[in-house]
């Protein structure tokens, strides 16, 4: 198969890194760590400190197993992404009580292959990952009742202060806190099966 120039460059970097070239390894990790963190891990974890830990584990695991990676048409990012997703699932399993069914459905969602190809621009990788995250979020929001969805929209999507959110919804700040708390609990459940 004839590769385009960026794909050929990525393949050469991977092969050099597999052969022990530290500079090639650095270039690979530097290139892909940002989309891994910002578009794959953080939108699935939500807490920056935890997301950093997961990125660290992902990179260490990738370095350990780099020798086992076999070049395919999609390049190395899907392989790195898969490691990251499994780290996310392991993390979630550690900190939450998830049912087997929820985990299974999450794993199926994680197995979806990205559309981009080897050598794709970072921006394209980022956009496609974010589109997936937005789709997941939209599907989770759809199961909320209207009042809960309004609370999440005002507070988190529009980033308005609590007082303003409460006023818009015609409730006290204390009652708004309760509505948002319930909305997030419902979202957690909805996210769990997507």
């Amino acid at each position: 198969m004839v590769l385009n120039a960026p794909a050929a460059e990525e393949k050469a970097l991977v092969e050099a890194a597999q052969a022990g070239d530290a500079a090639a390894l650095r270039m690979l990790l530097e290139r892909f760590s940002q989309p891994l963190y910002g578009a794959v891990i953080l939108p699935r974890i939500g807490i920056a400190a935890d997301a950093e830990d997961i990125l660290r584990e992902t990179l260490l695991r990738a370095m350990d197993r780099l020798g086992t990676f076999q070049w395919g048409g999609a390049g190395i990012f899907p392989w790195l992404r898969q490691i990251a997703i499994h780290q996310v699932i392991d993390h979630v399993r550690r900190v939450q009580r998830r049912t087997r069914l929820e985990e299974r459905v999450e794993r199926q969602a994680a197995d979806v292959m990205p559309l981009h190809h080897a050598g794709a621009e970072d921006l394209l990788i980022d956009q496609q990952e974010r589109a997936l995250a937005l789709k997941t979020m939209g599907a989770a929001m759809d199961v909320l009742n209207e009042r809960y969805r309004q609370a999440v929209t005002l507070r988190l999507l529009e980033e308005r202060p609590r007082e303003e959110c409460a006023s818009t919804m015609g409730v006290t700040v204390g009652n708004f806190d309760v509505i948002l708390h319930r909305a997030l609990a419902a979202l957690r459940k909805a996210y769990g099966v997507r």
Partner: peptide
């Protein structure tokens, strides 16, 4: 903490911050 994580997922998805993400990724790498 778990619910704050759900809120963080919404925020990270709706309001990506490429500069902050890049700085974090570089530091961790």
């Amino acid at each position: 903490r778990d619910l704050a994580g759900v809120a963080g997922r919404i925020t990270a998805t709706a309001h990506p911050n490429a500069e902050r993400d890049r700085a974090t990724a570089v530091r961790v790498t």
